[in-house]
Amino acid sequence: MAPKYTLHYFDVTGLGEPIRFLLAYGNIEWEDIRYDDDEFEKVKSKMPFGQMPVLHVDDKIYAQSTAISRYLAKQVGLSGKDDLENLLIDQAVDLFHDFRQKIGDWFYDPIPASKAAKVAQLKDHFPFYLNKFEQIVKENNGFLVNGKLTWADVFFVAPLNYFKYINKRDFLEGYPLLQELVKKVESTPAIASYIAKRPPGGRPGA
């Protein structure tokens, strides 16, 4: 029997969304528990490392969005065909992680002066990474790895709305291949039908 999955995350796309996309892609049912900030504060101490997303698989509990995504990808057939393809997927995922971490560093910086200083760094940061990703997609026939859909593509596309939301702009403008990649992932039938019925979220658009 398939295990019972329960996802705990905020009521936004963000780092929970790759997990939701992967579950949807695999036609796996899951309970999607969404928290606002106040609700999270109440349950925080029960989360393994005080963080979300957290996935319950039957009675076991797992943290860390990338680790969970890699596991689910294997279950739903979006892993690489061999070790080297898996390495290329991991490489793309880690690059995305580098990209989004700096955005988060800026957004969540509580000190106004140092937050302002980070805006200047981000100016170079966006084109540096987005040009690289555009180039990778060009060299890989429209995907991040070896010309076919893998969980690297899902991991890249799923949280983008959240990062666009906190940046208040669509930073993919001027990167046609990345825009195509978003369309490809989001129009995958099982993912498209999840998107059609997903809740609007506590912060609309995020």
Partner: peptide
Amino acid sequence: VEQSISLARYLAKQFNIDGKDDMERLQADV
């Protein structure tokens, strides 16, 4: 190939220290 954690995971698989099944691999990743 770049990215030190991706490389570590790849080498772990080659060296048979990545975990005995998907659940153990997930635990190691976490």
